[in-house]
């Protein structure tokens, strides 16, 4: 089990963990600001982003894809804000209009482009391909100390590790302004905190995490990671620090259990093939959320909306 694990499962699990954490961290603040669905919007617009990148560069290399996806996310957010203001439209409807149109545009471009030379896999973009991120060059646990083997790590791993570290670093750095402006924006402004910049920064960080993660787990699953671990954490505690902690724990647990159930679950149940790891990770995070909704110590709503 040892060497096989290192080669086949270690990197996917690590990537899954890092992707989940990178998304869960900004997700904490998004759900507190009732902006949870911006993750939904971002996840849907990565498709047109990568298609445009592909059309412009002619390759399916990762860097242009990521830049394309990030660009699409930023354009989407700008468009949403614009039509919200110009048209006096509520945020949910504005998001719906923008991301469905952009998604349709992406599919159209995909169809129009000449994909005979390179294969652009829509399914991959949406559903990810975690299982395939294996570490060919590894032999067993000692490979972790072998520079040659390490050099041949799937590139997704150091990439997501870097993004995760970046997001974690930003969260730590901007902890106080984030906390204050999320709780009381007016007050934060009077303290001189640039709340608009924080808002934009948060969304961009979320977009970066989404884009980095989608390569591994696909875009749709990213929303699960934005929302479920932080939401479950919110039901566990009233303190923001503790909530972020819980969300990280839940994210890790979802990633590990999800991968294990996807890979080994069918085997345990008598099947032969694995099922989608990304889908299972989302499912597990949902189960955790469900349990939190039923048993979380701080799950009850307090206040006027409580009685109905």
């Amino acid at each position: 089990m040892g060497s096989e694990f290192v080669m086949l499962s270690l990197t996917p699990i690590l990537i899954g963990i890092l992707a989940s954490i990178a998304c869960a961290l900004p997700g904490n603040f998004l759900i507190l600001r009732r902006q949870a669905l911006i993750g939904d919007a971002i996840s849907h617009v990565v498709l047109p982003g990568i298609v445009v990148a592909f059309l412009l560069t002619g390759t399916v290399a990762s860097l242009p894809m990521m830049i394309g996806a990030a660009g699409a996310a930023i354009i989407a957010v700008i468009l949403i804000e614009t039509i919200k203001r110009l048209g006096r439209i509520e945020p949910g409807a504005a998001m719906g209009v923008v991301f469905t149109s952009m998604f349709a545009g992406g599919v159209l471009l995909l169809e129009q482009s000449d994909t005979s030379s390179v294969h652009l896999d829509v399914e991959h973009a949406l559903m990810g391909n975690l299982e395939s991120l294996i570490w060919f060059a590894a032999d067993d646990w000692s490979s972790l100390l072998d520079p040659v083997a390490l050099a041949a790590l799937p590139p997704e791993l150091p990439r997501i590790a870097a993004v995760c570290a970046l997001v974690a670093g930003l969260t730590y750095l901007f902890w106080r302004p984030l906390k204050i402006s999320t709780f009381d924006e007016g007050f934060a402004r009077t303290m001189g905190i640039p709340t608009t910049a924080i808002s934009i920064g948060l969304v961009i960080a979320a977009a970066v995490a989404a884009v980095a993660a989608f390569d591994a787990v696909g875009s749709i699953i990213v929303i699960a990671m934005f929302i479920c671990p932080p939401a479950a954490a919110r039901l566990m505690t009233n303190r923001l620090e503790v909530q972020v902690g819980w969300s990280t724990v839940f994210a890790v647990v979802s990633a590990v259990l999800g991968y294990v159930f996807a890979g080994y679950g069918p085997l345990w149940l008598g099947g032969q093939h694995a099922v989608s790891a990304a889908g299972m990770i989302a499912t597990v995070s949902g189960v955790i959320l469900g349990l939190a909704c039923l048993f979380g110590p701080q799950r009850k709503r307090v206040g006027e909306a409580a009685t109905d």
Partner: peptide
């Protein structure tokens, strides 16, 4: 009697 959680309104 109407209450929100444990607090009576």
């Amino acid at each position: 009697t109407v209450s929100y959680g444990d607090k009576p309104a």
